[in-house]
């Protein structure tokens, strides 16, 4: 059935328009939550998730395949891997300065940066990137293409596939209750 994703996708002016109106707001909200998580409820996990969901919304409006091509795969991989490296990098930097993993006080002592900024780096550069990247990646990986044998399988007609699965189910549904 998923083979039909791109077949059934038809541009809808209504959805496109409202997504065009709403997407900037959700993106801003996600960024606000990420950047302002230190002093108000919210933080990088939530903000990253909302940023990721914004991309999902765009994918629903513009079609999943075009969105995936627009947001190339290497960008996503770079997003996730970059997040993990930034997190690890900050942790190792404090160790290089002679402290423990993520001991932010050292930034203050050695470089004169308040410990808060170390945390913000972790939050914005680390966790938010990882969460947003993983959410988008999981969505595209689950939504995208088909293994060839299934593609031929379902090409006959979607109804037949559903019917076959349904028959099998109802047969066994009868059996298992006895």
């Amino acid at each position: 059935m998923a083979d039909q994703y791109d077949d059934t996708y038809t541009e809808s002016q209504v959805i496109l328009t409202s997504v065009k109106i709403i997407a900037p707001f959700t993106l801003t909200y996600g960024l606000f939550m990420t950047f302002h998580g230190a002093d108000t409820p919210g933080g990088s996990f939530q903000g990253g998730a909302i940023i990721g969901v914004t991309i999902l919304m765009l994918a629903f409006a513009f079609g999943i395949e075009p969105t995936r091509q627009w947001l190339s795969n290497s960008t996503l991989v770079a997003l996730i891997a970059g997040g993990v490296s930034i997190f690890l990098g900050v942790g190792l930097a404090t160790m290089a300065l002679g402290g423990a993993f993520l001991e932010y006080e050292l930034f203050d002592e050695v470089l004169g940066i308040a410990p808060k900024w170390g945390m913000e780096t972790i939050e914005i550069g680390g966790i938010a990137l990882i969460v947003a990247g993983v959410v988008i990646t999981l969505f595209f990986a689950t939504a995208s293409g088909f293994t060839p044998e299934r593609g031929t399988d379902s090409s006959s007609s979607p109804g037949s596939v559903a019917g076959r699965g349904g028959d099998r189910d109802s047969e066994n549904g009868g059996d298992d209750d006895d």
């Binding site: 108000t40 933080g43 997040g83 942790g91 993520l102 932010y104 410990p115 945390m119 990882i130």
Partner: peptide
């Protein structure tokens, strides 16, 4: 220096834990 205790615990007190989760 942050006001949200959840963020503080997440990124500072238990940063290593969070790194594992990430």
């Amino acid at each position: 220096g942050v006001q949200n205790a959840v963020t503080a615990v997440l990124a500072a007190y238990r940063g290593f834990d969070t790194f594992g989760e990430a």
